[in-house]
Each structure stands twice: as C-alpha cells, then as structure tokens.
Nucleic acid binder design. Structure first.
Length: 832
RNA sequence: GCGGACGUGGUGGAAUUGGUAGACACGCCAGACUUAGGAUCUGGUGCCGCAAGGUGUGGAGGUUCAAGUCCUCUCGUCCGCACCA
C-alpha cells in the first residue's frame, strides 16, 4: 500500500495505474455533475433534428423493481446515443399517480392517498436518479397534480360538448357489504377481495367515451404502425377491435307469433350470408327482449322459465365453458328467402352484447349451431359444398364453398355468394351490409376517491351539465377518510354542493372519477411543452408539432392493448378537437420482456425479488445497466443470474484498469495503418467493427447484447497488442460506444483521457477493413474440410487452385463435378 | 377454435441477405500466483472418439452445390382473443 502523501511524488502515469475502479464514487460524482449542469434538458432550437425517446412512465408504487431498471436502461441508452449524434433529445419522466393502490394503502395504513403518493414519488425519484438516467428533470410531473387534472377535465368537457361522451346504464361489480364498486381484478372467485362477500351486478349510470366512433380509423391506421411496432402488438390490437363485415336483416315473426308476443320482428347479424338457405332455426340470447316479452306475458311453461333463469344466472364469461343449452320459445320466424317457418329458440351461446343478440342458425355450416342442433334434434341442411371432395361427416363444414340449393344463388362461391346475397337483401329492402366491432365504448367512470373528478354537475333543471372551463380544475377535497366503504366524495359534507354552470341554481357535483387510463392517454403530449407554459396550456401547439410523434416508445407488452389503444384514440380525438396535428402518437414501439428469476416473474409472494437498490449499492448502476442489457435482447425475457452480474462488474473493472494505462490525448490519433503489425491491425478492425455495430444497434435493432459482445471482442483484441496509438484510438471509440449503456464509467474515463472530446459522431475508418489476405473455408460436398488464406483480389481461378491444393486427400480418386466460390466466405467442391 | 411469438452446448445467448453453427459471457476443467481463495492471470471446453473422423440447431420430409435460416407436415412451450354469429 502506498501512503497517501507519497502519491504526489509518483509520476502521473503511475498514479493513474494505482487507482481502482470505484463505482460508488464515480457515479455520485457524475450524477451531481449532470444535475448541476442540467445536462439533459432539451434545447429550444427547433432547427435541430429531434428525437423523442420515451419509456412508459411508472406508477409510484413505493419502490422501483427490475422491470423499471430494464425499461429505463433501454430508453436511456437510445436517448444518450442520439444526444451524442447531435440530436435535440426529449427524454422525460413522470408519474402515473392516480389509482387504487393509494386507496388500498390508505385503508390499510391510515395514510392519505395524496401523502402516500407524493412520498413514493420522492423515494422512487431518488432510486431512478441513482441509475444515472438522462431524464429531463424540468418537465417531470405527476398526473395527480391539479394542473394536469385541469386540462384533462378540459378535454373531457370538449369531448362532452362534441357528443363523444354519453351516460348509459352499465353493470358493475358491487360489493353489498363494503358498498363499493369493484374492478374486475378485485373480484376473486366471485367474491370481494377484502371482505369475501359475494359480489352482485349492479346497474348504474356510467360515462362512456365513444371509442367505437374511431374503430375504423384505429384499425386502418394500424397499417401505418406495421413498420415500427412489433407485429404481435399490431395483431393484438386488430384482434381487439375485431371488425367483421356481414349482413344484418330482420326475421319477421309469423302472424300467430306476432300476436302472442306483440313483437313483429327481431334483427340478426351474420358474416356468412352465403349459408342463409341452410337456416333451420333462429336463436336469441337469454337476455333478449323477445324473451322478456314472453316471460312477462306468461307464455312459457315452468320448465322453460327455469332453464332461462338458469342461463341468465350464469356470468357471461363462464358461459363458453358450459354445455350448449336452450329452450324453444314456441314461436316462429319467416325465412326471408325461402319463406319457410323456422322455430325460434333461446340459447346460452348467443351473447346479448354482440350484434343484436340474436342469430340465424345454420347447423350445417357453423359448429356451434351444429352442436346445438344435434343436442335438440333440429334439422341440419347443407347448402355449401366443397369445390372438390365431399362434405365432412359428423361436423359442420365451415369453410368457403359452392352454394347449392338456394334459388338464384346456386353455383356462386364464397365471397361472391356473400356479396350477391347482401345485394339481394339491399335491393329488396330486407337487410343491409353492416360492420360490427368487438370493441366497446370506453367506460371511464370509477366510483373511487383517488382519481381525477369527472367535471360534470347535476342540476335539477338542466340535467347533467359540464363545469365551466374557467372553474377547472375540479379538485379533490383533502379532508376525507378512506375506509373502503362507498365513495368518500359522496359522503363529504360540502364537496358536492355547487351551482349549475348553466342556470346558476343549486346543483350537485358528479362524484365519479376518471379511469386512470385517461391520464396515461395524453401524458406524452404534456411532456413536449416546457414547464413555464404549463399554467397557460395543456401543451403548446408548436412544441407539439416539433416533438411529436414519440420516435421511440418503450414499455411492457402488458400495455399492448388498453393503454396503447386508448393513447392512439385520444391522439385522434385531440386532433379532431384541433389540439394536435398527428394521427398516431408512437412511431416506433419496443416491447421489453419480463425480468425473471428461477423461471418466474419476480414477486414478493414468490420471494424471488432482486432489489435494484441493493444491486446498485453493491456493484454500481453501471454494472446493473450493463448486465440487464447484455443478458438478453430487450424484447426477450431476461433470466436473472447473479454470477453473470459479477461478470459484468469484472468487465467494467477491466475496462477501467486498461483505460487508465492509456496516455491522455485530445484528438483521435492518426495511425498509419499499413505500418502496423498483424495483431495491431486486428485490434483496429475489431474496434471499427464494434463502431459499425453500434450504429446498427442504437439506431435500428436495439440488440444491445450483440454490441456489448462486439465491444468485449475489441477490448480482447486490443489486449493482444501494445501499440499506444491503437490503444488510444480503441479506447476513444469504445468509450463512445459504451457511454449510452454505462454512462458513469464512460464519462469518468473519457474526461480523464480525452476531455470528453470522444463524445460525438464518429466516422468509420474504412482502411482498417482492407486486408492482405482473407480466410476462406474449403468444403467438399458441403462439409468444411480445410482453411485457406487468399488475396482479397484473387480471381476465381486462383482461389480454386489454392482450394484444390488444400484438400488433396478428399479429391483422391474422385472427380470434381461442380465448383462454387463465395468470395470472402468459402469454396465448395462437389465431388463424385 | 382464431391470431401471434418461440424451440440452438451445462446456462444466457450469437449467426441481419441461405455460405465455416455455437461469437460474447456465465459455468465447468486444468495450470500459475498465493498462508488461504468464492480474488487475479493463462489455457481448455457442443456431443461421440486416443486419433482419423463421425455427429449436431425439437422431430420427419423436401428445395439447394450449400439450410438454424426457405417450403410441407409434426411435436412442444409461451402470449393475446374467444360460443363474436
């Protein structure tokens, strides 16, 4: 050990060698530097090329977990890369701060949700800071900030005024004991998660946003996202929207049936109008009005009533598991083409929520209808036949085929038959082409405290009226007690009291709050605008025009549908309201894989959680970031491995030790490549290969694991030679490449060695790829047999001469049938 | 059932346009240094074989001079939707 004072007497060079990699010191130093110099704030220079890099903002649950580390390490790497390439980079962070966990904590620990949330934010902000993430601190906000709520409520009012929001009765999970509405996730096996009381379905007024008005555009614009989004996510959204095109027509009841139930007809929807002549019965959902009517009039016998009760009692979600069941209603409909009488049944497989809640049943060509017909002995009448071959036996033929036995349409196939039949219905005014979506309108009411209040007022005279914009935000009262019973807003002594924005008379505030997905549907727009304008606007139009769309969005696959669909929807609505000018908010999307330990998702209950704080404390943020980006490509699941973390640390220590032996310099050294030895040339080549890899990885592929591997290879190659200039050049470039991944150590070393002049765009030096000889493989009949070295400009004949000479053993007694030369790769000789 | 992804050493993973499979790392083995090592350094490491060689990317076929990569079938794992008419 050298006494501290002694260092002054040693040379500069020796001093550096004596220093050891000390991540906690280095990391603190640079985090302070970045903080003090506000290094990562976007510039107000709209002439610069921009990149908006966004990792999905976190919910302030209390502590960060490895999923966060991965999410932000990926985003930070991309942001830092573009910043170094001279782009104006927006890389913000905020907090998705409303939601149930805050209320649950309030119930459990008697702490106010607001206090709990802001304290969590403060703690997690520190945790994220310790990772050295290059966030814009100036633009940070929480969605529960009243200033954010203000504009969200403003949008709600705009949408209401535009007719995009309506109120409708909907069924909600209701716990009769706690007197509260429960989210689906809070219902466990039909019981309340807190008190175990069986939940009931309660019908209540709810606010809905008409996302279905945008269903077609949301589907259509997925095409614009195909190049930048994972195909999986695009497919999931397409699926979720669930567009189907078909025929809607009305079944008229026969005269006697009309009289009995006082209903003339009911609508059905089918995607297979070509099968219409195979209809042998019609089926309606247990909740269908036709059934109500018959029940009211007492026209069904006891058995039928009982079966219908039973069907209705089963939750819709469970019905698909149950066996097909049904009852004949004793009434008949007239087939629109054949004019035959077809019996009307009620069936448990028909859903009231989809289409019109009634179907035409074609047992010969629909497997559900088939099962049902078999069970109840209903006729099965094939009208579609395969082009070649026979109808299958014992099952429905559901593929496209040729129509036979349907007057006027015989001989038509598949789509042409469907089109012709739809045309016939339209001409005869009996039905029309209809598009149906699986997507439902978005119910945004939540009967909870910790959310953005819905800015509506109930007036005795005027009805439901939006609050005046100048009165926004409608803020939450703070003097509430959260007990878990009911909605605290309803029970507050004064909060509800207000005057009607329209007529001024006494009125009451709406007590529902907004779904938290509303907040996350526009937070990325808020980030585009500097804080100084936040009092005045939700977001500035010019700023928005410059920064949007988000160039790279990064987050978990669990948001593939809801969040990403709502955010796309909101963007389109805000466009139509004149706030933004883009159609799609996220140009490119990266869905990161989960972090696993022992093959399972990390969770407290499994006890397999690795705490990021502990990891950072032991090895430093750079090691944590390096491991997480090296262990797997970002889209794949990542299996935690303690010894691989050690390996990452070991690599950084090696980098530090080796770099510290390099003589400092201010510019990239000039090297006469031709005068170098083989190992030196090899080292340069590896370094520049890594540089090329870097552009591909940061710009396009995000497979950081392969870039890190290339950097490791380059370091290994540098280690095999002693040329100081080659070392300088190598470290200059490799630190530039590593900076987005392991920023602290890179800034520390680059500052010491190069005054950080190596942080910029680097040019690839082409001459290092010029070689005197290229290695090639010689294979015989496709099997590699020998290695040869040939000159890079050797002709095909010269290469073949060398190749043949290298494998005499394999040519003995054989004749060459074919010779293939792939320059720079291999020679394949086909022998017999 | 529909839609999507995936399957490569003991492990995580490379191989981007079909062109020397297993880069890089973890682990393991051997050696060096050491009072010691769960530190560090050097070398080795797909499998079978002393070797020559054989064999090998879930399985079976096929296309090709050449297949992890393309095609057909099949098995398995994971994810999303689901009596959606």
């Amino acid at each position: 050990m050298v006494p501290e004072g002694a260092i002054h007497y040693l040379s500069h060079h020796t001093t550096r060698v004596l220093m050891k990699y000390n991540p906690s010191e280095i990391e603190k130093k640079w985090q302070n530097f970045w903080d003090e110099t506000a290094s990562f704030e976007p510039k107000d220079e709209k002439s610069l090329p921009k990149k908006y890099v966004l990792s999905m903002f976190p919910y302030p649950s209390g502590r960060i977990h490895m999923g966060h580390v991965r999410n932000y390490a990926i985003g930070d790497a991309i942001a830092r890369y573009w910043r170094k390439r001279g782009h104006n980079v927006l890389h913000p962070i905020g907090w998705d701060a409303f939601g149930m966990p805050a209320e649950n904590a309030a119930i459990k620990n008697r702490v106010h949700p607001k206090k709990w949330t802001y304290e969590n934010i403060a703690y997690m902000r520190k945790e994220l800071a310790a990772l050295g993430l290059s966030f814009s601190k100036e633009r940070e906000f929480a969605t529960c900030d009243p200033l954010y709520t203000k504009y969200e409520q403003g949008f709600f009012v705009d949408m209401w005024n535009r007719g995009l929001i309506y109120r409708k009765k909907g069924y909600l999970n209701w716990c009769p004991h706690d007197k509260t509405v429960l989210a689906n996730e809070q219902v466990i096996e039909g019981k309340c998660w807190r008190c175990d009381t069986p939940i009931v379905q309660k019908e209540m007024y709810q606010y809905y946003i008409k996302i279905t008005d945008y269903a077609d555009e949301l589907l259509e614009d997925l095409k614009k996202l195909e190049s930048g989004w994972p195909s999986q996510v695009v497919a999931m959204q397409r699926n979720w929207i669930g567009k189907s095109v078909g025929l809607e027509f009305s079944f008229l009841l026969d005269d006697e049936s009309k009289k009995r139930c006082e209903i003339d007809s009911f609508k059905v929807f089918t995607t297979r109008p070509d099968t219409i002549c195979g209809v042998s019965y019609a089926a309606v959902a247990p909740e269908h009005p036709l059934v109500d009517s018959l029940l009211e009039k007492g026209l069904l016998d006891e058995d039928a009533k009982k079966s219908i009760e039973k069907m209705r009692a089963m939750p819709v979600r469970e019905r698909n598991m149950a066996e097909k069941e049904g009852v004949s209603l004793g009434i008949y409909a007239i087939h629109p083409i054949t004019k035959e009488r077809v019996p009307v049944w009620v069936a448990n497989f028909v859903l009231m929520e989809y289409g019109s809640g009634a179907v035409m049943a074609v047992p010969a060509h629909d497997s559900r209808d088939y099962d049902f017909a078999k069970k109840y002995g209903l006729p099965i009448k094939p009208v579609i036949f395969p082009k070649n071959g026979e109808l299958p036996e014992g099952e429905a033929f559901t593929e496209d085929g040729v129509v036979r036995g349907c007057d006027g349409f015989d001989g038509l196939f598949g789509q042409e038959a469907r089109d012709a039949i739809i045309k016939w219905f339209e001409e005869n005014r009996l039905g029309k082409k209809v598009v149906n979506f699986r997507l439902k309108d978005w119910g945004v009411s939540r009967q909870r405290y910790w959310g953005a209040p819905i800015p509506m007022v109930h007036c005795q005279k005027c009805g439901v009226v939006p609050e005046k914009k100048e009165n926004l935000p409608v803020t939450l009262p703070e003097d509430v007690e959260i007990t878990g019973e009911g909605n605290p807003l309803e029970h507050h002594p004064t909060w509800r009291e207000c005057s009607c924005p329209k007529c001024g008379s006494e009125a009451k505030r709406e007590t529902d709050t907004l779904d938290t997905f509303v907040q996350s549907s526009w937070y990325f727009l808020r980030f585009t605008t500097p804080r100084k304008l936040w009092e005045d606007v939700a977001f500035d139009k010019d700023e928005c025009r410059y920064w949007m769309p988000v160039d790279q969005y990064i987050g978990g696959i669990e948001h593939a549908i809801l969040h990403l669909l709502y955010a796309r929807f909101f963007t389109k609505v805000l466009r139509d309201l004149g706030y933004v000018e883009i159609d799609e908010p996220f140009k490119r999307l990266l869905t990161q894989g989960m972090v696993l330990k022992d093959g399972a998702k990390m969770s407290k209950s499994k006890g397999n959680v690795v705490d990021p704080d502990a990891l950072v404390q032991k090895y430093g943020a750079d090691t944590a970031r390096l491991f997480i980006l090296f262990a797997a490509p970002p889209t794949q699941e990542l299996e935690w491995n303690d010894s691989a973390v050690e390996g990452a640390y070991r690599f950084l220590r090696k980098v530090y030790d080796r770099a510290m032996k390099v003589e400092p310099c201010d510019t990239l050294p000039k090297i006469d490549h031709s005068s170098l030895q083989k190992s030196e040339k090899e080292a340069r080549r590896k370094v520049y290969e890594a540089l090329e890899k870097g552009e591909e990885v940061y710009g396009e592929r995000f497979t950081f694991n392969t870039l890190i591997a290339a950097v490791m290879e380059a370091f290994n190659a540098l280690d095999k030679q002693q040329n100081e200039k080659v070392w300088q050049e190598g470290v200059w470039i490799l630190l530039n490449l590593l900076e987005p991944i392991v920023p602290h150590i890179s800034w520390e070393l680059s500052e010491r060695l190069f005054k950080r002049n190596n942080f910029g765009s680097l040019e690839v030096c082409e001459e290092v790829f010029e070689v005197e000889s290229v290695p090639m493989a010689v294979s015989i009949n496709g099997k590699p047999r020998a290695q040869i070295e040939v000159s890079p400009d050797a002709t095909k004949e010269e290469i073949l001469d060398i190749a043949r000479a290298a494998v005499p053993k394999w040519l003995e007694g054989k004749s060459i049938v074919k010779e293939i030369v792939v320059p720079g790769r291999l020679v394949n000789l086909v022998v017999k």
